[in-house]
Design a binder for these strands. Sequence first.
DNA 1: TTGTATGCGTTATCAG
DNA 2: CTGATAACGCATACAA
Lengths: 339, 339
Amino acid sequence: MPTIIDVAKKAGVSIKTVSRVMNNQTNVKETTRERVHLAMEQLDYSPSDAARQLRTGKSLAIGMLYSDPSSGYQSRLNHAMMQACSDAGRYLVVGLFEEHGGSWQQQLEAFIERTKVNNIILVPPMCDSSILQEYLFNRGIQFVLMSPSHTAPKVSSVSMDDQMAAREMTQHLLDQGHKRIGHIAGDPAHIASFLRRRGYEEAIVSMGLPRPGNDLVIDGQFDFRRALAAAETMLSGDNPPTAIFAASDDMAAAAYMAAGRLGLAVPDDVSVVGFDNISIAGTIWPSLTTVAQPFDDMAAECIRILRNASSDDSSRPAPELVVVPHKIIVRSSCTAPAN
Amino acid sequence: MPTIIDVAKKAGVSIKTVSRVMNNQTNVKETTRERVHLAMEQLDYSPSDAARQLRTGKSLAIGMLYSDPSSGYQSRLNHAMMQACSDAGRYLVVGLFEEHGGSWQQQLEAFIERTKVNNIILVPPMCDSSILQEYLFNRGIQFVLMSPSHTAPKVSSVSMDDQMAAREMTQHLLDQGHKRIGHIAGDPAHIASFLRRRGYEEAIVSMGLPRPGNDLVIDGQFDFRRALAAAETMLSGDNPPTAIFAASDDMAAAAYMAAGRLGLAVPDDVSVVGFDNISIAGTIWPSLTTVAQPFDDMAAECIRILRNASSDDSSRPAPELVVVPHKIIVRSSCTAPAN
DNA sequence: TTGTATGCGTTATCAG
DNA sequence: CTGATAACGCATACAA
């Protein structure tokens, strides 16, 4: 493995100059810079993380702490985050908030002590703790909030627009000619449920249609069984909807089952759309039209923000509030209503 | 942060002695060893990974390369592996085999060059490549095979026993009194499909029941739609099974839907069991009895093997062939047959 | 604009 | 059994 010394020799300069070039510092003649770059390429040189880290005390690790390792959300986020880290030449160190492991702050403190990370990603529900934010801020640790319920003033955050996504999903249904669209809502405790519901209502009202009432909007609480009951109630009513928008794919699957039980075909008798794009959504039949949370892009944004922050020596860079565009995945569970 | 020097001072010894104690080396008087341990505890000392790495050239990173980032299997494995790494004080670096990125060996080579990992986990389908194994072996890189189709002679591997799991799952059905049990098999291209099917047949035959024929075993190829057709065929036949064992949870979900379409209730009219324990299995209703692949334990075993291997200075340690016990998750999709 | 010299916290050599 | 000291590869204070 070539070292900085080899590069310096090859380029006919001192190691300090090579160092300057590597870190994009000023005070290097342009021709010299090029010569160094050439030498680095020819030797296929890449700096040693270990040495760098030893010298600067800054780790390339990025910490992410979560509280529910079994959730599908977290699992997919991990996946995306790992990929993003890998792409950025950094690596992810994960930690778990234990139910009975003391206060969040204590656990965060212990994690930092143990791993020595100085970049952290805070995911729900921890990202909504102002205590944690305060602590990290005071300690000078760079951090990003992932999908916080409320954006904080001085802190960078990355999220998607649940409300807009729900609105577009509903619009998609309206565009196909549906006039009566049911909504199986999520757990009201989650802010996302609220936003998705609002987006759904907005789309409908903005088309001049009446605001949907209790016959069309039922709480499913992200629970399969409740959603099943909700869908059955809707579909067996007097004036059943021609389409159902479930606030999660799990609940959309429940709508599939309710339709089957009632002898209704999806999508011919009733269209169904979901939210999440869980892995089964594409393999189930008919394949489910749904909203894909842009995990990959959100992860990449988190890493980018953290990188910028730590490369910037001068104090704290301005916080960024990034909203990543989602994607509507149109598949075959949705068609124009009969007649 | 205390360093080795602080510990040495506190214990009244030289740093070399502290180093010896840390690395469990010989030639230290027992009382001295204790004194050092005490000092380390009192100072809450932990060695610097960066320095260690710089000095030894050995990275704490563990590499894992995969080819299908969107698969649920991979996503769950990642998750488990990250956790295991974190627990072991190491970290995971992931890489992706690109479809058109050159041969596997070239890509593996590039990954190693770039990340400098010297511990690698090979997952399906790469774990079955003897070329890759040979390459890593010659290069002196420690590696473990994850769920290989065939265990290799000189290489450690970690897997679960698909056949045994399928056999137990089927036995569970038999124990409840089922005599006619259908099987929706997976893609014959996967060795796991074959093993699961064999386990199913074994259980049935060993009870003195006739070996199931083509009316009871249908290929679903891990495809929802095919599985749906298969389940409908079985359940609408002359002598329908009272229980269906699907080789994946996705396909079990298809069986649910087929039952619903035919006006059959799960589990009262037909029991359904699956394989994988995907996240929806517990939330769907009735919740699905299934086989849980022991991702966490398998991941932990991989890391353990790698750790042992790299701490062992003397040549190459003996390869281990670990089979991790699986778990049958009994939920509510399965009951005794009617009458 | 460029170079020299020192130290980050370990491990390892070799001499007691 | 123990210890002084030299690396490992990089960044930087300081000198030129």
